[in-house]
């Protein structure tokens, strides 16, 4: 198919973009800041630049790193029934899977809720800091951003947060639950992780990395 198709003479592919979802071809006309370019056919957002997004993303990524590290250190939840009590940390939740094949599940859960979110934040810092301060992109910045994008679906901090809510509903009838500092850190973290993905205009980042 691709061999027999005629190549349109004239237009330089450099100023064309295609919708990643439906392949519709567009000539780039960059929207004003705060506006969005949307695919006319499947409504996928193609370009959505925002003023100061780079700096915001750096701030968010830094906070994510600090919060995840502290949230894993401080106590997360404590359960109490009469005199008996038990505390759990976030890593403790992952490590509750142990023995035999459960080890893989423990590693996977720890990766999904702690390591991947932190790694993505670190990669974003590596990519964005030179760009925002008008320096040439860091070595391997493209690879770093690509990895960060690959990991996006596997960063599940916010899913874990909703899991906490469900678990609390189940436990609430049986016992009293105390929230540790890590719980509140994690709550903030979830908002930030969601913000990280909404602020970012991937088109703008890739374009800046081209320099």
């Amino acid at each position: 198919m691709s061999q027999s198709a005629p190549i349109i003479p004239g237009p330089d592919p450099a100023d064309l973009i295609a919708c990643p979802r439906c392949d519709a071809l567009y000539r780039v006309s960059e929207p004003a800041r705060g506006e969005r370019a949307v695919c006319a056919r499947c409504h996928t957002v193609l370009i959505a630049p925002r003023r100061g997004a780079g700096l915001q993303l750096i701030a968010v990524a830094l906070t994510v790193v600090i919060l995840v590290i502290s949230a894993t250190i401080f106590p997360f939840l404590t359960i109490r029934v009469g005199n008996a009590w038990h505390s759990s940390s976030i890593l403790g939740a992952a490590l509750s899977f142990h023995g035999g094949p459960f080890v893989f599940l423990a590693l996977a859960v720890a990766a999904l809720i702690v390591f991947v979110p932190v790694l993505r934040a670190l990669l974003m810092l590596y990519v964005l800091i030179p760009l925002v301060w008008d320096r040439p992109p860091a070595t391997g910045a493209r690879r770093a951003f690509r990895l960060s994008e690959d990991l996006r679906p596997w960063s599940m901090a916010e899913v874990f947060a909703i899991g906490c809510a469900v678990a609390l509903v189940k436990v609430a009838d049986l016992a009293d639950v105390d929230f540790g500092p890590a719980f509140w850190m994690f709550a903030v973290l979830v908002v930030l992780v969601v913000a990280q993905d909404t602020f970012m205009c991937r088109y703008s980042v890739w374009k800046s990395l081209e320099r």
Binding site: M1, S2, Q3, A5, P6, I7, I8, P13, A14, L16, I17, A18, C19, P20, C22, D23, A24, L25, Y26, R27, S29, P31, A32, E35, R36, A37, V38, C39, A40, R41, L46, R146, E149, R202, Y203, W206
Partner: peptide, 27 residues
């Protein structure tokens, strides 16, 4: 803002689109 223009696909134009960064390249 909606990008205007008639819908042609990258494939119909003999181009290959990158699904990650939306750039297009020759077949």
């Amino acid at each position: 803002m909606e990008i205007t223009g008639t819908v042609t696909t990258a494939r119909a134009a003999g181009l290959i689109a990158c699904r990650r960064c939306t750039t297009v390249w020759p077949a």
